[in-house]
Design a protein around this nucleic acid. Structure first.
Length: 455
DNA sequence: TCAACTTGCACGTTTGAATCGG
DNA sequence: ACCGATTCAAACGTGCAAGTTG
């Protein structure tokens, strides 16, 4: 509150669009972002979160839900999320563990999902948690719906961007800050590999309630009974109940009822016992695989330069000195472990179901701010009009030519991550946060907002 | 041959229109 | 005519399992 008052005192009304461009438009680093449902995320993360990707697009579960503070109540912000590869590897599920299965495939078109409420006042973002429920993941590289395109069997984590901007057109000149949460990293899959993840999803996702052990699923009952019969024929010496619960556990995660509950507990115990187990192979072997489930995962995040800019692993001060992508990238990402990727075309995801009931007019200033604007059309337009200057679209986020190696991002090699962060023990749900300015208007055309994930 | 992927299905939730009663 | 509560069906979101693909 005190912080908010301080902010308010420094701010006497809605800033003009140009103001947002100023590097000192507001107190840098004051924004706080917190991940909600942290315990749930942690539960998944400890087992090794998997997210289904499908052609038509699949929602995430758990979905990203955040709470924000430290925003200027009367200033407008845009919230964006994108997915960043964890590393340069492809994985496979082998004997209850994730293993490296080779080099990552060339990345699909980079997509950034715009929160449907964007742009909205800081007060709007802060008054309630911000949900990215409708964000969808797809493996369809030709996707026309604006879903975020990922590769199966690759690891990603979402990045959240808070941009102070009156509209999408001023994003480029705006201050924005980026946040990540270690717990939200996941492996994109077309079918669940780890049965523990499946069980967790079923138990926590309301849409999957039909697969829970409610005892109402006739189909399962039939199958369970069939299994009982089969098993009983096989092992006549076994008491029926033992056979029964055994099948429940292995085949259908039990059924409802007393036995089912026993089975469920058993599963939960198994989950606890095997925490981090999906990645244990690499740990045991001492092979660096950049697994987020590793105990030092947080260190990776805590030390990562999350500046969404050309030199994403470059110190921030270097940034301001030389914002030109061509001058900074080459030297910033080096190392023997790097892999090269094909150029990646970035793209802002459209918001097909743009919420028309977006935040209302400002309650802060005397002059009413423009009402909610539907930017989905703009985004669609820009996607179609790629090539026309002055419009957010492919050409802006991918202004790379061959002489601008910016488009080449390399996943850090196994040994490239910085040493463990000293605050590891004090790790909390607070996002790793980095802010920086797009203040250099002169170079804006070479300064893509989301170039970090484009290669 | 097999892992990865696709597709159709059953089951559940969500949502919005239609209906009803006060 | 208006408003709120209820009902209902369609749309949508799930994981599963069988089939397909490379």
């Amino acid at each position: 509150l005190q912080h908010m008052r301080q902010l308010k005192s420094n701010f006497s009304g809605p800033p003009p669009a140009s103001m947002a461009a100023g590097p000192d438009a507001y107190l840098q680093g004051s924004i706080r972002m917190t991940l909600e449902d942290l315990e749930l995320w942690k539960t998944f993360h400890e087992i090794g979160t998997e997210m289904i990707i499908t052609k038509p697009g699949r929602r995430m579960f758990p979905h990203c839900k955040l709470s924000l503070s430290g925003l200027i109540p009367c200033a407008k912000y845009i919230l964006l999320v994108d997915m960043v590869p964890e590393d340069g590897f492809r994985y496979k599920w082998n004997k209850e563990k994730w293993e490296v299965a080779g080099k990552a495939e060339p990345q699909p078109p980079c997509r950034t999902y715009l929160h449907p409420d964007s742009p909205a006042l800081g007060s709007h973002w802060m008054k309630q948690s911000v949900s990215f429920l409708k964000l969808k993941l797809t493996n369809n590289t030709l996707d026309q719906h604006g879903h975020i395109i990922l590769h199966s069997m690759h690891r990603y984590h979402p990045r959240f961007h808070v941009v102070q901007a009156d509209d999408l057109f001023s994003v480029r000149w705006s201050v924005f800050q980026t946040f990540t949460f270690p717990e939200t990293s996941f492996t994109a899959v077309t079918a669940y590999q780890n049965t523990k993840i499946t069980k967790l999803k079923i138990n926590h996702n309301p849409f999957a309630k039909g697969f829970r052990d409610e005892g109402t699923n006739k189909k399962r009952w039939v199958l369970i009974l069939l299994n009982i019969e089969k098993s009983y024929m096989k092992q006549r010496s076994h008491p029926l109940l033992c056979v029964f619960s055994g099948f429940c556990q292995s085949s259908y995660d039990g059924y409802n009822g007393e036995e089912g509950r026993l089975v469920k507990r058993k599963d939960e115990d198994a989950v606890k016992e095997e925490r981090y187990s999906p990645w244990s192979a690499e740990r045991q072997q001492g092979v660096r695989t950049d697994s987020p489930a590793r105990t030092d995962t947080r260190d990776i995040y805590n030390t990562e330069q999350l500046v969404p800019a050309p030199a994403s692993y470059q110190p921030a001060h270097e940034y301001r000195k030389s914002p030109s992508p061509s001058s900074s990238v080459g030297s910033s990402i080096t190392g023997s472990g790097r892999s090269s990727f094909e150029p990646r075309v970035p793209d802002i995801a459209t918001v097909p179901d743009h919420d028309s009931s977006k935040p209302g007019p400002s309650h802060c200033g005397p002059q009413p701010l423009p009402g909610p604007q539907d930017y989905s059309g703009v985004l669609n337009m820009t996607m179609a009009q790629a090539g026309k200057p002055g419009v957010i679209g492919h050409h802006i986020y991918s202004p790379y030519s061959t002489e601008q190696p910016l488009g080449q991002w390399s996943g850090p090699g196994p040994a490239q991550y910085p040493p463990p962060h000293p605050l590891t023990a004090d790790y909390t749900s607070q996002a790793v946060h980095h802010g920086y300015h797009h203040g250099n208007v002169g170079e804006w055309s070479q300064y893509p907002l989301f170039s970090y994930s484009c290669w």
